[in-house]
Write a protein that binds this DNA or RNA. Structure first.
Lengths: 358, 358
DNA sequence: TTGTACGCGTTATCAC
DNA sequence: GTGATAACGCGTACAA
């Protein structure tokens, strides 16, 4: 293998730095890592030498010796969907500043057959795990917990595990209450997967929906709850199904903006106008919502990721921290896709986004 | 530190497996990694024992001993934009099957001040690098090349470097020619950054645009080329600027779908109807394009990522492979946002997507 | 085909 | 504050 000569082809080692600086490797290690018990002068000197030699620590060696993996895993079912890419962005932004590597694992849809169970790939490989939007009853997740690694959940919560999410109940309630306030009485729901699916965030949104209806004395009609699978097409089909009902809803709450977009298209296909004929509320705060004049419950996806990453770093710093479930607020953005029931001209309400100007 | 007892708390080591299987650590290593010169019976036995003991190789130790980093870096300026998230998805899908870790690095917009220069973080840390959509003249990229790692570029090309991309010239040409064919003579362009910016993919799209115009004897009017910065809002501003010209274009080619979406909104704001009043062509094949009835040049972003990942794995397998620039085809999807110039009723052409049904 | 033994580059534990 | 030095767990010549 490579010799340990000062000018070895492969790379400068800590020994080269030590020799050049006239100190021991132990001192170099301490100096470079900012550990205490190093003379400031020595430290500066060592740093300078290391810099001059263009020395870079070997992660492998460091990890082997220290027992730390030096990286954290981010597990997500999707990469190219609004929520997940936003969250990932937030996570990356924070982790970039740490000295931990971000290992990316995409599981694909949890309901699909997955390729390699994450927990087998993760063993001995990461110091902590960040999980985005996986249902808490997922077997993968359970096996993950058994790895005994610090874990932070994003967009889900589980007892004894640190998590960051929004209040999905409140979000669902807010969206539905808005429709109730506009005078709607038959309010449909476009859910994600077919309900009931335990432990999914969508369940909380469903609860909010039901709460708002019940609180207003409206009936919760199972016929009015159609799954849209969180895709545009799914949303379109769901809306079409809603319209085909004997007594179609006058308003619909879609659990994601992308499904709401599909719903908007379904309306157009039927010659119906959003707001005037049927009101639609989405969920997410997708950039496109503004464009399509869609009322929606905005969630700070990127902030969720950033906050979760910070939590995990803190947890790594001090494992004694009690896991807690943090929540970030959502906000209803009212746009043209919702209006007073039966109003010939959509009524003006306080609005948001670029459309806000009168 | 941890003892090397068979039942050490920290983990099973190769020695434990060797002892339990009654062979040497060398044999275990060879057997588990599928190296030749191992008796099939021995190999099976060792595998079984390793499995029973739930043995997992220590990546750190393996990497230190072998000199391989066991991971590849994926560098991207954005995570939450259509093209980049799609490409990343393709990359991840392939890398998942390999035994290499995917290290994610987001640089932010290359024109911004960046945080930590990638090349410093990458040293000794990865075996290869996958770069998404960074301009070839980016200083970061140059320093990356000097790391002497196998590199594959996605959405860009550079002499002597393996790359995967589409033919942007052809794409731009196709979009523009389509508008020419519809009888348009004043054809505007919504570019990315202000032109000319050397070495950006957008330059090729610009070339295609110019070629198509020139080939048809149309003038290339600088006034008709407005930057839209690849965002919805940018596209809206750009379109608004186009409309404010003394002689506005009757058709516009936007270099990305998201900018085209903005352009559509600008039209709507002006009471104009896409297709009838002004034709718009986008670029990407965004899911939303179908929804908004936008004609667009589709590019197989996910395939680009997958192919690039495979290339890089091949290159890692056999470093003697000559770097080559692979290209994937694009395809024009005609929808309602483009129509014959001046036609009162948008003319019917072969169309695509859900709208295709007569 | 298999085993022995050394080295990979760093960290951490001691003495000093 | 600093220096020796023994791990860390695995890969791999080389010998057998």
């Amino acid at each position: 293998m490579a010799t340990s000569d000062a000018t070895a082809v492969i790379g400068i080692t800590i020994r080269d730095v030590a020799r050049e600086a006239g100190v021991s490797t132990a001192t170099v290690s301490r100096a470079l890592r900012g550990l205490p018990n190093v003379d400031p002068v020595t430290r500066e000197h060592v740093k300078r030498v290391a810099d001059r030699l263009d020395y870079v620590i070997s992660p492998a060696a460091s990890r082997l010796a220290s027992g730390r993996a030096g990286s954290i895993a981010v597990i997500t079912p999707f990469l190219a969907r609004w929520y997940f890419s936003k969250v990932l962005h937030g996570v990356e932004r924070i982790l970039q500043r740490s000295d931990l590597d971000l290992l990316l694992y995409s599981t694909g849809d949890p309901s699909e057959v997955h390729r390699v169970p994450p927990h087998r790939r993760l063993r001995r490989r990461v110091d902590a795990v960040l999980v985005i939007g996986l249902p808490v009853d997922s077997p993968d997740l359970q096996e993950l917990f058994e790895l005994d690694l610090p874990v932070t959940l994003i967009g889900a919560h589980s007892a004894g595990v640190s998590s960051v999410s929004i209040d999905d109940v409140e979000g669902g309630r807010m969206a539905t209450q808005h429709l109730v306030n506009l005078g709607h009485e038959r309010i449909g729901l476009i859910s994600g997967r077919p309900l009931p699916t335990p432990f999914f965030p969508e369940n909380d949104r469903l609860s909010g929906y039901q709460q708002a209806l019940s609180a207003s004395g409206l009936v919760v009609d199972q016929q009015l709850q159609v799954p849209g699978f969180f895709t545009i097409e799914g949303g379109e089909h769901a809306m079409t199904a809603q319209l085909a009902q004997p007594k179609p809803p006058t308003a619909v709450f879609a659990m994601s903006d992308e499904m709401a977009f599909g719903a908007l298209r379904a309306l157009r296909r039927h010659g119906l106008q959003p707001g005037r004929d049927v009101s639609i509320v989405g969920f997410d705060g997708h950039e496109m919502a503004d464009l399509l004049d869609l009322t929606t419950v905005c969630q700070p996806a990127e902030d969720l990721g950033a906050l979760a990453a910070r939590c995990l770093l803190d947890l790594l710093d001090d494992p004694s921290i009690e896991p807690q479930a943090k929540r970030l607020p959502t906000q209803l953005y009212v746009r043209g896709s919702t209006a007073i029931r039966g109003a010939a001209h959509p009524v003006s309400l306080p609005r948001h986004g670029n459309d806000a100007k009168p």
